[in-house]
Simulated scan of single mutants.
Amino acid sequence: MANLLKPLESKHISLKNRLVMPPMATSKAEEDGKVSKGILDYYKEKSEGGYIALIVIEHSFIMQQGKASNLQLSIADDSVIESLKDLAHIIHKNSSKAVMQLNHAGSAASQEVTGMEVVGPSAVENPRKGNIPKALTKEDIKEIIEAFRQAARRTKEAGFDGVEIHSAHGYLLNQFYSPLSNKRSDEYGGDVLSRIRIHLEVIKAVREEVGEDFPILLRLGAADYMSGGSTVEDAVAACREFEKAGVDILDISGGFNGYIIPGNNEQGYFYPVTEEIKKAVSIPVILTGGITEASAAERLLAEGKADLIGVGRAIYKDSNWARNAVEALK
């Protein structure tokens, strides 16, 4: 059997194959962040036939101050739960698993969108946006951790199969992880283990809320690919701690300024990072990054670069991509 078609049994989740649709923002939500008909139609089309084992829904804001853009999905209050049930149901009907991705944009947010002050780990320029946020107090950090907890509760109540904590692509948790944006001198700044303190507190709060059997994924922007930024060594150290803290699956991306490695466009371009992380942990690792051919996905799995393959843009452009890939490998 082709590697991509092999089922995956992990502690809290069973997947029929190794194909994942990673989160990609559609900007199709209602003005208030609720699920729209456009969102339902989009995920119905993408999950048609159940060829994708796991669909990670686009990032959803956990609180107004962390909203990244207009028409972004919300997981910020209980009023969204009913419409999210419809979304989970549509994907389950097509026999794929569905996970919500929880996010706070931090200094990647803007006052025009949120109507609130922009915040971040430190009052230093955001490498991508160029703005200088207000540094979060420890009290603010506690509120954000609580917002992640409540968002995870809503995810479970809406009937999803798991929750993904977003710490990639220059958003708030990634800002804590990156030495470019985290210049704190308290327990939330310093070496990599201090910079991921907030992650470990979020994981703990989420686990307490959802219980022992509900899958928790974490998406990590593993390396910044910028001078003075986070490194593969940081990622390995961080992922060991995430596993100990109870994360079930690691979803690896990179690039503070977008999911890219400058000058590298080969298929699965984050594999040098996933390969190292995979050696250091025993939980499944998802590899994404420019994968457009089933044969490339198959090769990356065969070479042990990852346990699961995320195909984003190719599925975004062609809703039949997964069907064609699975049929070709049978």
Score class of each variant (00 low, 15 high):
G229V: 07
A135Y: 04
A238K: 01
N174C: 15
I260Q: 11
S167F: 03
L250N: 03
P127H: 10
G255W: 07
G159S: 10
I198G: 00
P215C: 08
A205L: 02
D191M: 02
R195W: 04
Q150G: 03
A222Y: 05
T137D: 13
N265Q: 14
Q150K: 14
E139W: 07
K244I: 15
L250V: 08
S227C: 15
N182A: 04
N131A: 09
I203Y: 04
D234P: 08
L173A: 03
S185H: 15
R240I: 09
C239N: 02
I165R: 06
Q150S: 15
L200Q: 06
L250H: 05
E241G: 03
A147F: 00
Y259N: 12
P179I: 13
E146N: 11
E187N: 08
R128I: 11
S194M: 07
G254R: 07
K204W: 07
G190L: 00
I198R: 00
D140R: 07
V247T: 03
L200H: 03
F160W: 02
K204F: 03
V210Q: 02
G189K: 02
G211F: 10
D234V: 04
G162I: 03
A205S: 12
N182P: 12
R154F: 15
I144C: 12
M226N: 04
A168K: 00
L217Q: 06
N174P: 13
T137P: 09
Y177Q: 01
V192A: 01
A123Y: 12
G254L: 08
E164G: 08
S253R: 02
S230A: 10
I260Y: 15
Y225M: 12
L136T: 13
K244F: 06
S185P: 09
I141S: 09
L200R: 03
N126S: 10
E139T: 13
C239K: 03
I132H: 09
L250E: 01
V192K: 00
E241V: 08
S227R: 11
L136F: 15
E139N: 14
G246Q: 07
T231W: 05
R219M: 11
Q150T: 11
G258I: 14
A205G: 15
L220F: 12
G229H: 05
F176E: 01
Y177S: 05
T231G: 09
Y171E: 10
E157G: 08
N264F: 11
G189M: 06
R128V: 15
D186K: 01
A237V: 10
E241S: 02
A238N: 05
A123L: 13
E212N: 13
A151W: 00
H166D: 14
A223K: 00
K134S: 12
I216A: 11
I252Q: 05
K142N: 15
R207T: 09
S194T: 04
G130S: 08
P127I: 14
I165T: 02
E209Q: 11
F256V: 11
T231S: 05
V163K: 00
I145W: 03
K204Q: 13
I252S: 07
D140W: 05
V232I: 14
H199N: 06
K183E: 13
G211V: 10
D191W: 02
G190P: 00
P133L: 12
G211S: 10
C239R: 00
E139I: 15
I249P: 01
Q175L: 10
M226E: 09
A158V: 05
G229A: 08
N174V: 13
P179F: 11
E157L: 04
D248P: 05
F160Q: 03
L173R: 02
